[in-house]
Each structure stands twice: as structure tokens, then as C-alpha cells.
Amino acid sequence: MRRYLRLFAVQLRASIELALQYRVDFFVGGAMALFWLFWNLVPMVVVWGRRPTIAGWGFWEALLVVAWFTLLRGVLEGAVQPSLVQVVEHIRKGTLDFVLIKPADAQFLVSTARFEPWRGLDSLGAIALAVYALHRLGRVPAPGEVAIALLLTIAACALLYAFAILVVSAAFWVVRLDNLIYLFNSVFDAGRWPSTVFQGAWRVLFTFVVPLALMTTYPPLALLGRLKVSTAIAGLAGAVAFVTMARLIWLRAIGHYTSASS
């Protein structure tokens, strides 16, 4: 365990060095991170500008959802996707062999290979948004509510990671992955809206198939004191099951790779 923590630190350090290596990239990276932070607010300002509530969500409540969306998009684009892109490169160039002959868990090695440190700004911005929204609502969440929101957020990060692992596993069979990543990003974009805004098949899709509800709607609901404990528990259990499934599929995919590639 300590060894993996150290390994994680080494990988993270390399990514930070990389971010610092090109001066222009460094400043552009920072500016882009700030830009996205504000851009995320535009659609909701437009929509809520015309009506006070949508499906029971007022502006400041919906802002909490946007905060979680921003946070998770930072995690997705800052910690999950960069590594994913690297694995796809590895598979295409055949250099995954070097990863597989290392005496460490291959999934760990590939999924910590690259980070975009600038996306850390997203998390800071998200926290600021959430605090401001709660302030405007005049609500101070109870410690238990904060704890549930935190747990759900960790589960949400794990879910994002599991999705990425599934996409990477698919890369062992399908070579072109750009479309799959693009599709996932487009679907994830729906997470900026509270899940109850969607109806019928869409709500089922975003709750059970791509659990955006758990990722971006449940934690704010917990802070607002409107999430049932049973829903939170079901969400956490679902996340654990999903992550386990992703791990199993990854192991199968690696098995497939080693017996089929040349």
C-alpha cells in the first residue's frame, strides 16, 4: 500500500513537471481552466433567467448541482481522461508491453500515468460555488449531511474512474476510441442539470445506465437535506458493484491482449 502511494506521488510529480515544462502551455492551461469554470455557468444563467424554478429547483439549488458537475468534470478531465488517452497510445504503439512486464498492478500504473494539474482549479472553483450557493440559500448543512455528500462524491469519482477503465478495456478490441470518449463526454454534459429535470426514459438512463444522478444531483440533495438515506445507500452499493465489474472486465481485457497480440 505504501509502495503504491509512493508510486502515485512519483507519477503525479512527473505530470506536474510536464505541466511546468512548456511556459506557454502553462499559462494557456491556467487561463483555460478559469475560462471553463465561468463557461459552465452560462447555460444555467440563461435558462433560470426566464423562470424562477424548474422541476422544483431554484437557481441557487441548481447552482449546487453545477458546482458538483464542475468538480467532477475537473476530476474526469484532470485525472481520469489524460491517463486514458495514454493507454490508448500504448495499445496502438505496442508499448503496453513495458507496462505489463512491470511488477506492479497494470491497471494502477496506466490509470495514474498522467494528470492535468491545472484542472485542480476546477475543484477549488467548485467548492467556492457550492459555498456561495449555500450561503445564498441561507442553509448550513448538518455534519451528517456533509458526510453523506462527501461519501457520494467519492463514489462519484470512483464511478468516473470505472467508466474510464471500461472504455480502456474496450480499446483492446476496438482500436479507434476517440468516438467513445467523445460520446461519453457528451453524455456526461447532461450532468450539469438536476436529474429530476429529465423525464421518462431519460431519467432512467441518467439514473441507472450512466448514473449522472448519483454523481451530480445526490450530493447537493444531501446538503439540502432532501436525500433519503435509503437512496444514498443504494447509490453507494451501486457504485461499489460498478467498480468491481469494471475491474473484472479489465482483467479479462488484459488476458485477451496477452493471448492475441503480436
Binding site: R6, L7, V10, Q11, A14, L18, P103
Partner: peptide
């Protein structure tokens, strides 16, 4: 690692092989 000096790969391997 393509964009970093080889020393960084050495450090990474040091951590991997513990």
C-alpha cells in the same frame, strides 16, 4: 517518457521496482 528527461523514467522505475 518522451517529454521528460530519462532521469524521470529512472525514478519511476525505482518506485515501481521498489
Amino acid at each position: 517518457l518522451w517529454d521528460l528527461p530519462p532521469a524521470d523514467t529512472f525514478i519511476l522505475n525505482r518506485a515501481i521496482y521498489d
